[in-house]
Design a protein around this nucleic acid. Structure first.
Ligand code: ZN
Ligand code: ZN
Ligand code: ZN
Ligand code: ZN
Lengths: 130, 130
DNA sequence: CTCCGATATGTTATGACATTACATTTATGT
DNA sequence: ACATAAATGTAATGTCATAACATATCGGAG
């Protein structure tokens, strides 16, 4: 699977670290996990993350300064991706809500604002934690 | 006006710095503006910001690591506050959309997620910049 | 008024997150 | 084989935020 993605060694290592994690990881946490593989500097992680984010294989959680592997079931074409973040167990659920996007689109049209990227992060307690 | 808010000296200085600014300011930018008033350390700014944020007089823009004075026309009671951020001129428009909140509420109910705080930031170009 | 607890302040040091700059290596297409 | 673009390695630095501790100010109970 990763083979078909033509990832470089560093990119593949970073992606696997995120896939194996239960929750979001900071760049420095990823680095610590990959020191055994020979990675030493933060920049090696950030560069891999940048490429993975370009390809929507990884997302950044702005409110946590951390990263998650994409768990999208559908495609990312033009979608606004949102996250529900449990403050108890740390799990992050990625989702994309059609109606929500429509509402955001309605606001931007009404206010003549040309949107480029939308960040939507909801913090609270997941079903298992309340 | 600020007098009726019973702000301390540092809080009032920080709030005024944000009110006089055209766009969001980082804590360190605020500090630089207030060195003339005798402030020297980042913590003095962060402490004032914390109090101002508690009282919803200031909001943090997560995607910019920066802060803005509240420009809310209505009250903040239970509202989700959102921001439209112009990437050309830097202006930030604060808003609160009832329908949007309803949609977010619908998603969280459907997924049995108990929301605490929502962050919604839209980056793009404002009416004046496109 | 005096004491006391709560809140705010001042200062230094440190921790956490991210990028610049530059040299080197590896992949790709002609 | 060569030229070019992409990726990597490394060190230093920049930016954002908090910990720890000492001091000062405010406000109410006695
Ligand atoms: Zn995704
Ligand atoms: Zn949970
Ligand atoms: Zn506001
Ligand atoms: Zn603009």
């Amino acid at each position: 699977m990763s083979e078909t993605l033509n990832l470089t060694r560093n990119q593949e290592l970073v992606l696997k670290a995120l896939l194996h994690s239960q929750g979001p990881l900071s760049a420095y946490q990823i680095l610590d996990e990959l020191r055994g593989e020979g990675l030493r500097a933060p920049l090696q992680i950030y560069r891999a993350l940048d490429k993975l984010r370009d390809r929507k294989l990884v997302h950044r959680i702005e409110t946590l300064n951390a990263f998650v592997a994409c768990s999208c079931h559908a495609d990312h074409a033009g979608e606004t991706v949102a996250f529900a973040i449990c403050e108890a167990c740390g799990k992050v659920e990625e989702f994309s809500d059609e109606a929500l996007q429509k509402r955001i689109g309605a606001w931007t049209r009404e206010h003549d604002f040309l949107p480029a990227r939308t960040t939507l992060e909801i913090k609270g307690l997941c079903a298992a934690c309340h």
